[in-house]
Amino acid sequence: MTVVETSGLTKRFGNGVLAVDSVEMSVRRGEVYGFLGPNGAGKTTTLRMLMGLIRPTSGTATVAGHAPGDPAGLAKIGALVEAPGFYPYLSGRENLRVIADYAGVDQKRVAEVLDIVELTSRAGRKFGSYSTGMKQRLGVAAALLKDPELLILDEPTSGLDPQGMAEMRKLIKQIGQGNRTVLLSSHLLPEVEQICDRVGVIRGGKLVTESTVQELLGKEGILVKAEPVDRAYEMLKSMFGDALVSRQNGSIRLETDPAGSLEVNSRLMAAGIAVSELRPVERSLEEAFFQLTGEKQGS
């Protein structure tokens, strides 16, 4: 069953910029869905459309069973869209109380969510004095106030130091357990790889793929380092066929089950080829991402 479903969702801004182009997106109940794309790809605009903050130029979306922005749907959704926005002259706790009033949530819930994000001891301080990490945590706390079926988090680790990022990932994993659906937007590949069940990759406003992380990574293979490398390459091609063998920076990559490593090793050794390294490999999400988005690694 899907919690978020879009069809031909498109947004062209007044200045003619096509920010989102016919996005067909489907987020299933209970999963942690990674919405992946480089900066400016259209992630935040898509999320804003899902929350009813921006009206689509064309296309439709259903979020938690309702049209975007419908109060009945918003009652089931918690969201942190871009940087958390709170009143700087109020304390963290008072800010959450204001949000709880808007959301029609019992004030008792404020203490609960402060506990979840481990901010209780600093909840009395003014929001304006919070560090970036504390602001992000308060944003997540606000998103959790409604105990939402669907949690939308837009770049929740943005601006955090490595420790803060690790803590935030742990928190997202924790709150994504059970039946809750989490839609996590990020441009950080390790984040998505570690947390998400499925991913959608957006590039230039278009959703270029939507699959499980495993599908996106592709099947595992074997990396072989051997001397002489040309002889090893020819031999392995004869064993597995041209399509499954490729050369990679002086090594040879086989697109085959790593369980066959032993046989590969013994055949090469029997042919007098010295094997210095033989290990299972998988395509990193980074490689898959750059391949899909057409961007150059390290650029």
Binding site: M51, P71, L74, G85, Y102
Partner: peptide, 13 residues
């Protein structure tokens, strides 16, 4: 303060 988006994504229209 970007609080408009925070308030508009709560329940009231």
């Amino acid at each position: 303060w970007s609080t408009l988006k925070t308030t508009l994504i709560q329940r009231p229209g």
